[in-house]
Amino acid sequence: MDALEAVRLRPVSPRLGRRRFADRVFRAAVFGAVIVVLMPLAAILGTIVVRGAPALNWDFLTSLPKPVGETGGGVGHAILGTLILALGGLLMAVPVGVPAGVFLASDRMPRLAGAIRMCADVLAGVPSIVVGMFAYTLLVLPFKQFSALAGAFALSVIMLPTIARTTEEVVRLVPSTLTEAALALGAPRWRVMLKVVLPSAGKGVAAGIIAAFSRGAGETAPLMFTAFGSQFLSFSPLQPIAALPLVLFNYAVSPYDDWHAQAWAAALVLAALVLAGNVIARFATARRSS
């Protein structure tokens, strides 16, 4: 008698029916919950694609805004501005965040590490407008000048916890056997970090940086009173600079229909940028852990 037969021959418990029913109800509930979670995402993406696509074309992506009343024009300055701001933010956040993550993963000075970890978590929870305020007080007020620098700084504060915590996470995943091998060769700790651990964790660290990039690229509030926005193409760190979220906001609240259409298209571009970053980060981490 094989196992299957044994199961078949076992007398059916009177509770079996009830259990099957409970199982079905539970499955239905879980399935329903998944739908409810996915629906807003689908609705948002669907709406911005449907409403943003008509205004989207090469000209929109590359040209500057036209004065009110003229049709056409684009958000090339804002796409560039967002890239500049986000990269500038990374330029400030990476040199602090990566070493901080490495330190957190090293399990040295547990008290200090605990304090830093808590700061990072609190920072991650600070409303982004407060971060903007902070950057405004620090870098705008004293110079009486909105600037790309202040905007990038505000974004760097937003990016910092993401970078530090993902770096910590992926550095922890590097097998301690590698660290030991390097230390046993007489390598000082900093060189072990630089030449063995970080290269091994490289993809994961990069994924964290890309995730921080897309997080920063999508922020609006910290830029409103730092980078401020601009109608022009600007490469100066000391001048106001345009950013997609700011354009989106300004166009959306404007009274003009063609600006509304452009706001939707800007939303589509911004969402695509952020999503692309997240997807790249996902893929990088997936390959690392395989």
């Binding site: 390097a182 007489g186 390598a187 000082p188 072990v192 063995v196 091994s200």
Partner: peptide
């Protein structure tokens, strides 16, 4: 020292592994 589990550095070439005792110091 040689450890229980072989632990060559995966991000280095065979040659660089051999030279690691130099480069890492």
């Amino acid at each position: 020292m040689v450890f229980q589990k072989p632990n060559p550095f995966p991000t280095m070439s065979v040659r660089d592994n051999v030279l690691a005792g130099w480069s890492l110091t």
